[in-house]
Amino acid sequence: MQRVNMIMAESPGLITICLLGYLLSAECTVFLDHENANKILNRPKRYNSGKLEEFVQGNLERECMEEKCSFEEAREVFENTERTTEFWKQYVDGDQCESNPCLNGGSCKDDINSYECWCPFGFEGKNCELDVTCNIKNGRCEQFCKNSADNKVVCSCTEGYRLAENQKSCEPAVPFPCGRVSVSQTSKLTRAETVFPDVDYVNSTEAETILDNITQSTQSFNDFTRVVGGEDAKPGQFPWQVVLNGKVDAFCGGSIVNEKWIVTAAHCVETGVKITVVAGEHNIEETEHTEQKRNVIRIIPHHNYNAAINKYNHDIALLELDEPLVLNSYVTPICIADKEYTNIFLKFGSGYVSGWGRVFHKGRSALVLQYLRVPLVDRATCLRSTKFTIYNNMFCAGFHEGGRDSCQGDSGGPHVTEVEGTSFLTGIISWGEECAMKGKYGIYTKVSRYVNWIKEKTKLT
């Protein structure tokens, strides 16, 4: 034993070699072989497995989906700052455009905790909710729209109204504003409101030439003092309507412009014939205590009207009353817009006519005020429907199939267009061939041609 100890002390290297040989010859039971080890760690190889990531292109799944990435790591994937920024906006807080917040056709661009709407022409605001041009839906104005110097929408209202708090709607500024039905039992019968379409306001006024200088022999019209197929109006439903009495009662109609003036057809009036105007009328054979009678003290036909040349060209006249009318729910003026808007309103496509005229061709006159909704007829169809001249200051309205029309005794009465609950004068009943005849239409004086003249002559002093 002493000898062994001496050998170990003198030859430590020998001992180490012996131990190493023993270990190498022993069977290893701690580690699995290569094949079995792979069965336990069965993990798919990654895209760049075996390579240094710093030297390969980034992978979106590896960089940002398996674990949260930084902007720089995302930049490695896209290799483009702009594309990385677009991805980053949604990656950080989701897609803010998912709810489609942009209105009126706006395009949404996502941002971090926010979004941006790219608005089409005519709109602005956070969600493109603000109209900035009158060309689109009248700028959301209830009545009139004008573009300011910086191309912003400025709404306005006709006389007797003021802008509401929203700067879009119009509200009454006087007790009985024009064009409004205020009798409670008839307010439910107000005709369907007309909503502004998209309009090209630059070209809204037709490029028409008034044929002022045409000389033409007097034409022989049949029954051209021209509501057939209409309905009984309720008291106060058309408070701007008046009836004219002269040699015979209810020979023509008219509309209240203001307390002192009536507008009617020029062919209705004769110099030297006494005319009485009755406002607030409903049943011409009954006294309903809503009527107001006034005498006409002055007749002003349009300066281009000449019955000797043509009885229905420039067929418009103004009547001055001896005493002002007292405005109330049964006696209310009709609204008159400017030339541009009167023309736009007419193009809405349908209007209402009213009167006490004959209820059928050569038949009896109506006792109760009649009204009828009539569609506008395109000019080409209008011209083809008659052998008589249709001037540019006239328009056609009615039904091709016949059966409904204005008729004798309705002449001078109103053709009105309702705009968001307020009625505007767009025409004056003038003439036609018979009444409600198939293929024939009622012919009306186009008020847009005469609004400046009306307003100039009827100013209240």
Rank of each mutant, 00 (worst) to 15 (best):
K339V: 07
P235L: 08
L425H: 02
G427H: 01
E288Q: 06
G106Y: 02
Y444H: 04
D405P: 12
T386G: 08
N147W: 08
I297W: 03
D198M: 12
F87V: 14
T417D: 03
C141R: 00
L60N: 14
N42L: 07
S156E: 10
Y341G: 04
T417W: 01
N135A: 12
L19G: 01
G50Y: 08
Q96P: 06
I262V: 13
P235M: 08
W240R: 01
A279S: 03
D200V: 11
F399Q: 11
N295T: 04
V377S: 03
M437S: 08
C435E: 03
E259S: 06
V228Q: 12
E82T: 10
Y201F: 11
G351N: 08
D111S: 11
Q216G: 06
C69V: 03
L376D: 01
I210H: 09
Y47D: 13
Y312A: 06
G160Y: 02
F31Y: 15
Y330P: 01
M65V: 11
T290G: 06
I428P: 01
L41A: 15
A366E: 09
K347N: 09
K234A: 14
S148Q: 14
A207I: 08
A192K: 09
D212Q: 11
K89Q: 12
E259V: 05
N59D: 14
C128R: 02
E285C: 05
V243R: 09
I136A: 12
G363I: 06
A279T: 03
G122S: 05
Q167A: 07
Q57P: 11
A233F: 06
Y444W: 01
T271A: 04
E27W: 03
Q57L: 09
K438T: 12
V326Q: 14
C108S: 00
R191L: 12
Y115R: 04
G349N: 06
T29M: 14
Y450I: 01
G412C: 07
V277S: 01
H282T: 12
L318G: 01
V416T: 09
N245F: 02
N80P: 12
A173Q: 14
F87L: 05
D322T: 01
K347D: 06
R379L: 14
A317Y: 01
L321S: 00
T386K: 09
K247F: 05
A397V: 09
D223I: 10
G179R: 01
A37T: 15
I112E: 15
T445D: 01
R140M: 08
N393R: 03
D93H: 15
L163I: 07
F348L: 13
L425W: 00
G409S: 13
N393Q: 05
A37Q: 09
R162Y: 11
N38Y: 14
E420K: 12
T461V: 11
M437F: 13
A337W: 01
N304L: 14
I443M: 07
S70Q: 15
P120L: 10
G351P: 03
I136L: 09
G122F: 03
E35P: 12
S220C: 05
E281L: 13
Y161N: 00
I429T: 13
E124I: 09
V242Q: 01
N113D: 11
I214D: 08
S255R: 00
N42E: 09
A380Y: 12
I275A: 03
F123I: 07
F224I: 12
E286C: 05
F31M: 15
I454E: 00
V359C: 07
Q408R: 11
R384W: 04
G402T: 10
L41T: 07
F345W: 06
T225I: 10
G355W: 15
G21S: 11
G122R: 05
C141F: 00
E231V: 09
S448N: 05
I40K: 06
